[in-house]
Amino acid sequence: MIIINISIKEDCLDSTIIKEFAFDQSINREYINYLGKLGSMQYFPEFPKPFFSIIVDREFKIKGIEGEKTIRIIFDNKNDLEVEKRLILFCNRFTL
């Protein structure tokens, strides 16, 4: 899985920022589990298209849908670019 685009979805008034990562492939269950290693994961297979979220305390929250090619990340501190860099590396390191 490779991130092919990163866009800002919302630059909030508080310190948070919401970004969208777009991948070259659809997100499957295996990849969701991989992302889940980052923090505390919730996964909802009972929804028509399964929803997942992963919270890494004081850093970010990931939201996504199984089968889609994008995830949304709410970064707690928009100025901490290190956190984003580490997340990008982590996302790109997985091979299906």
Partner: peptide, 12 residues
């Protein structure tokens, strides 16, 4: 915002 995200992306 999370509810709206789920409604849109999971439930259309």
């Amino acid at each position: 915002s999370e509810v709206a995200f789920i409604l849109s992306n999971s439930f259309d």
